[in-house]
Design a protein around this nucleic acid. Structure first.
Length: 376
RNA sequence: GGGAGAGUUCCCGAGUGGCCAAAGGGGGCAGACUGUAAAUCUGUUGGCAGUGCCUUCGGUGGUUCGAAUCCACCCUCUCCCA
């Protein structure tokens, strides 16, 4: 259940209540594709850095360790020791990113496993079954994230198929939630808006899926190569047709500024691999802008990554040490960097929520939309 | 003391007359990364300088139109026999 508490222009402050706890929105979900944050963070680390939602992936967990194993282990919550909200992505993004290994049909998608090469089939029902076995709090509808650029006619056809798939997801989830041995019988299903870069298709599709009165709606298929301005424009065009009393989730986005711009336009939830992946590569976010800790200038820099940050990394370790660790390919370097970046994202969301609460979002937005892009 | 082999750009290492400022790797420097096939990928790595010049393949001299490559001597290192 979602409660919209306050609006500031189009920006929204809300609360999403689930069986695994309440999520204060706007929120950034931390990506743990295979059940762990890459870079070596556990559920305990996530608690320490203020994470509200962990995001795992259906396709990856289906291949390894398999959803059957996860179910036997009691579900993702029990397996990972993360007792708060888990959102599972449906595998729809892998339909896009594993383009060379798949074949899309009406019934679903035929993949070749990127691990073993084995043939696998995933359709809406399979995706729902896997997500049910994983026992996540929120399941995502099985969709197709079309590549950019894609032809208008193909994008339209794909969006219509995604709607037909959504109907099948809804039916299958209803069935699964009523079974006796289902781990989370309160599993929620979010629909996903598609339509590529064609605003009319986006609007048409959002209107269609809004009809189903789902507990949440995502905007998918963005930040796949189109200019950021185009992404913002699509959010603005689609937002009026997304139900006001339901959370809106902008999938796979993005940079701190993308998130700020998204909140500004009415988005409540985000997720992105950027803070963790970039951290592993030495690209760190600070309140003064972005630094590349690999750069020689940090070799003797004894200050923390961000002097105003109170994450466990910044409270204890210097830029010089992290610089050394990452250059030396030490696991600890990646771990410290990932912990900082995710903390930064979580803190960004906290500051956004605070500014919405006390009515200063507009000035927060104006202050940080440029600073966060700085390269320092 | 005798014999065999080796010394290449920051390092390892290819190259045995011109297409060589010199493969490849490492390291260095920088960049990319947006529902994670990503602890990955890309660029660059002698100096000047607008496709040209200069310096460089242990040292010195030589052969040649032309040498990292051939010859002589020297220096250093490794291995084998005494």
């Amino acid at each position: 259940m979602f409660t919209l508490q306050k609006k500031c222009g189009n920006a929204r402050r809300g609360e999403l209540t689930t069986v695994h706890g309440t999520v204060q929105t706007p929120a950034f979900m931390n990506v743990a594709t295979c059940g762990a944050i890459k870079g070596g963070l556990s559920a305990f680390d996530l608690k320490e850095i203020g994470t509200q939602v962990m995001l795992c992936n259906t396709y990856h967990l289906h291949l390894r360790p398999t959803d059957a194993v996860v179910k036997q282990l009691g579900g993702l919550h029990k397996m990972t020791k993360w007792d708060s909200v888990i959102l599972t992505d449906s595998g729809g993004f892998q339909v896009f990113s594993l383009a060379k290994l798949r074949n899309i049909k009406e019934e679903g998608v035929y993949f070749n496993s990127h691990i073993s090469g084995a043939k696998i089939f995933m359709g809406p029902e399979q995706s729902m079954q896997i997500q049910s076995n994983l026992g996540s709090t929120i399941a995502m509808a099985f969709d197709e994230c079309v590549a950019n650029p894609s032809e208008y006619s193909y994008t339209k056809e794909s969006a219509q198929r995604t709607t037909r798939w959504l109907v099948r997801c809804i039916d299958e989830m209803k069935r699964l939630n009523s079974l006796d041995d289902t781990i989370n019988k309160e599993q929620m299903l979010f629909g996903i808006n598609q339509g590529g870069i064609y605003n009319d298709l986006r609007i048409e599709h959002m209107k269609e899926i809004a009809e189903f009165d789902l507990p949440g709606y995502a905007i998918g298929g963005l930040a796949v190569g189109e200019p950021a301005e185009k992404m913002y424009e699509i959010i603005e065009d689609v937002e009026p047709f997304a139900p006001q009393n339901k959370p809106r989730y902008l999938m796979g986005v993005g940079t701190p500024v993308n998130i700020l711009e998204g909140v500004y336009r009415g988005v409540d939830l985000f997720d992105c691999v950027m803070p963790s992946r970039n951290a592993r590569h030495g690209h760190l976010f600070t309140w003064d802008g972005i630094i590349n800790i690999n750069n020689k200038k940090y070799e003797l820099d004894e200050s923390p990554i961000d002097k105003s940050c109170d994450c466990p990394t910044c409270k204890n370790f210097s830029r010089a040490y992290i610089h050394h660790l990452i250059k030396a390919d030490e696991m600890l370097g990646m771990r410290l960097a990932v912990r900082h970046n995710l903390h930064f994202y979580n803190e960004l969301m906290q500051k956004i929520r605070d500014s919405l609460d006390d009515g200063t979002f507009e000035s927060f937005y104006n202050k940080y939309k440029d600073i966060l892009c700085n390269r320092i």
